[in-house]
Amino acid sequence: MSDSNQEGPILAVDLARRLAGDAEYQAALSKHEVDRAQAMAELSAAERPIVIDLDDVGIRVDSVWDLLNSTSRPPFYSDALPVLLHHLKKGGYPDRVLDGLARALTVKPQGTAYWIDLRDAYLKTAPESEAATGLANALGVLAAKRHYTELTRLVTDERRGSERLMMLKAVRRLGGESGRQVLGDLALHPLLGKEASHLLRRVRR
């Protein structure tokens, strides 16, 4: 027999009401909102030089991340690429901004010409960082056959982190038998093994 004084499940609306009256929770929420707004303002200020340079070539955005919306890319998007590359090579930006630059440069076929520059920028990032992930993604997507040897070096570099997962598909796409061998060698890797094994199974089908 159930205890008649035991409370049943709390409905979302009831929980919202309770939290609305919880002064400690509201103070923590307010601090979180203030911290988030401050972080966004700092990022906006950091990428302001990029936004200004984009405006100079006729591309008006509020953030580098605005360029990633493929449904509304400016008609002269190719004009943005040298600007983005310049700021990526310049460096000194927060991880979130570098990630945005890398992803905005991940455009085929133009971005393939910047592969070595993207590699150099990637090697300057901290493993497991947001910037490293964005740049590893760009390297994987934009890699051409001529980049395969260097790509495998990056994938097997144990000084790097799990961002290398972003380059494994390119190893399969470009490597042929050599790519299958690389994936096979990584099948038991603690970070890369699961994805390498999955890609290897797809190759063998």
Rank of each mutant, 00 (worst) to 15 (best):
A138K: 14
A126H: 11
A136D: 05
A104I: 04
H86V: 02
A131L: 11
T152P: 00
K89R: 15
V83S: 06
A131I: 07
L118T: 03
V107I: 13
D95K: 02
R172D: 09
T156D: 00
D117W: 06
M167D: 11
R172P: 01
Q181M: 01
K108T: 10
K124P: 00
R103L: 14
T149A: 15
L165T: 07
I116R: 14
H86S: 13
A80T: 01
A121F: 03
L105K: 06
T156C: 13
R164T: 12
L81G: 10
L142M: 02
H147A: 04
T152D: 11
Y93R: 02
R153T: 13
A136F: 06
R180C: 07
E128N: 14
A102R: 05
H147E: 15
V141S: 10
A131K: 12
L101W: 01
V141F: 09
P109R: 02
F76N: 14
V141P: 07
D117Y: 08
A143C: 08
G179F: 08
L118A: 11
R153C: 13
R173D: 09
R153E: 13
L174R: 12
K169S: 12
L98T: 15
H87Y: 12
Y114W: 01
Y148F: 15
S178N: 04
L151S: 00
L154F: 03
L135H: 02
E130Q: 14
D117E: 15
V141L: 10
M166Y: 06
Y148N: 01
E163Q: 08
K90H: 11
G111C: 02
V155L: 11
